[in-house]
């Protein structure tokens, strides 16, 4: 388990507060822009940032995030490049940070070396879409030793697996699936754990944030943010600021 220095809980700190989690793909459109975007998103009210390590075959992503992965790789982004982005972000911000990566880049970097680097840069968590509960043992020990939370994912199809997985939560639970199915999934999770649930189901508009945050502890915004970066490239910072600010206001509306 992670210790009290881990910053994820800050994202979910206020009683009944809802967290806004925003994702971007490292290296899209380039490293310098990502270093600029993250503090802008924080200033606009993001509580936690997920940084995607680009992968050649992002099987669990939609077309928008897939395209961002391919763009970033084409422009030369590597795992070392991602850590460099994190290092530069950390020079100006202590916002809770999670990485999101497929297992192969982590495996190739070397589990120990990867999580040691995360620890040094005060990365708080990691989401690995192709690492189910049954396989997590090979990653868990080095991750925890460096105080990096392994964020579990749950889907409506998890059914009887929910209890086992949810009870062992570090950080927060990444709840995925269809927009219609997540409310009852969160209800099932509630029965077994008090760990925060953050919903990642293609949330793109403030209205959706209001709805999703009404029965969870937070919303994860992925494609919608990536799409802004796709459209505006290096000039995306003010657009991202505006977008995140609107989303955050929707979260506040719930908090009131």
């Amino acid at each position: 388990m992670i210790n009290e220095n881990n910053k994820i809980k800050r994202a979910f700190h206020m009683p009944n507060a809802k967290a806004l989690i925003v994702f971007l793909t490292a290296g899209d459109p380039d490293a310098d822009s990502c270093v600029k975007f993250i503090p802008e998103m924080e200033r606009a009210g993001a509580d936690l940032i997920e940084i995607g390590i680009p992968f050649s075959d992002p099987i669990a992503e939609d077309e928008i995030v897939q395209a961002a992965n391919i763009r970033a790789i084409k422009r030369g982004m590597t795992t070392d490049g991602v850590f460099d982005i994190v290092k530069r972000v950390r020079e100006r911000s202590q916002i809770p940070l999670c990485l999101k990566s497929y297992l192969n880049p982590v495996f190739h970097y070397g589990y120990e070396r990867f999580f040691e680097k995360c620890g040094e840069l005060s990365v708080d968590g990691i989401i690995i879409p192709d690492l189910p509960y049954e396989e997590k043992a090979e990653v868990e020990e080095p991750a925890n030793r460096h105080n990096v939370a392994l964020i579990p994912m749950l889907a409506p199809a998890s059914e009887e697996r929910i209890e086992r997985i949810a009870k062992n939560t570090d950080g927060y639970i990444y709840v995925t699936g269809s927009k219609e199915a997540v409310p009852s999934l969160v209800e099932s999770i509630r029965r077994v754990t008090a760990a925060p649930c953050a919903i990642g189901v293609g949330i793109a508009a403030p209205k959706q944030v209001e709805h999703m945050a009404s029965f969870s502890e937070g919303c994860i915004v992925e494609s919608a943010a990536v799409k802004i970066i796709e459209e505006y490239g290096k000039e995306a910072a003010p657009r991202l600021y505006e977008f995140v600010k609107n989303m955050k206001e929707a979260v506040f509306a719930i908090n009131l």
Binding site: I59, A60, L103, P129, D130, L131, P132, Y133, E134, E135, A137, E138, P152, M153, L154, A155, P156, A157, S158, E159, E160, R161, I165, T176, G177
Partner: peptide
Amino acid sequence: MSKGRYGIHGGQYVSEALMNEI
């Protein structure tokens, strides 16, 4: 470690959404 191992190879490295089905 999960089932379906051949030496160090194999396993079930898929998204949580597929685990029940497989």
